[in-house]
Design a protein around this nucleic acid. Structure first.
Length: 217
DNA sequence: TGACCGATGAAT
DNA sequence: TTCATCGGTCAT
């Protein structure tokens, strides 16, 4: 484990605050075939039992076998789930025990192990390697077996990367959660505005630059 | 022609 | 969410 690995404390606050802080950090996955990593360029916060878009919406506690159980524990663990029956989404649990919040990692700018990522993704285009939540899981070989993994001491971790000043960050509404009613408009998606490695540029142009991150409460 | 890009529809 | 496909654009 490298000394720049983010510690538990980093994850112990609201999902929106952590989602913003995660921009510019490096997500690393180690496997027998080699190491793959990328800089986080796009995240989304899912803010617990009061957020209609969050899987833990209205859930009061863990229950036997439920996929959201890991979210009820302390921050710094992996929440991985299957979407559309075939793609995986990787989230980091945030906040203290009892507050089921998480941050979905939506896109990375490839760093180490590009060759390995290309073979796993079966594409040569750099922008298509990790530009989407399902794509980055395939590129980094993150699977359901990583559900519950400790990000502060396992094969998947996050390290200090580049500082992303507020002027370079942007908050927009979240992607594909129209079912969430009022919550669908919350500015809980965070992007590095000028990055060429986003999942989509939807909502980016219209969103106003913001520095007030207090909405994460 | 060929590379590239955004829009669209399909599968799941 | 991702992929295949189809136009339109631009450069050779």
């Amino acid at each position: 484990m490298d000394d720049n690995t983010l510690d538990r404390e980093f994850y112990m606050e609201g999902a929106a605050a952590v989602a913003r802080k995660l921009l510019g950090k490096i997500l690393i996955s180690r496997s027998p075939e080699g190491e793959t990593s990328g800089m986080i360029t796009e995240t989304e916060a899912y803010a617990g039992r009061e957020d209609a878009a969050c899987h833990a919406y209205k859930r009061q506690s863990p229950s036997a076998g439920h996929r959201t159980n890991i979210m009820f524990g302390p921050g710094g663990y992996a929440y991985v789930y299957l979407i559309y029956g075939m793609y995986r989404c990787f989230n980091v649990v945030t906040n203290i025990r009892g507050l089921p919040e998480a941050v979905l990692i939506r896109a990375l700018e490839p760093r180490d192990g590009v060759k390995l990522m290309r073979s796993r993704r079966n594409t040569a285009k750099l922008k298509d390697l990790c530009g989407g939540p399902g794509k980055l899981c395939q590129a980094l070989d993150i699977t359901l077996a990583d559900y519950g993994a400790d990000l502060c001491g396992g094969r998947i971790s996050v390290t200090q990367g580049e500082d992303v000043p507020d002027g370079a960050a942007l908050a927009t509404r979240r992607i594909n959660i129209d079912y969430a009613g009022e919550a669908s408009g919350f500015p809980y998606r965070f992007v590095i505005k000028e990055s060429d490695f986003l999942s989509t540029r939807r909502y980016v142009k219209r969103a106003r630059r913001k520095t007030d991150l207090s909405l994460g409460a």
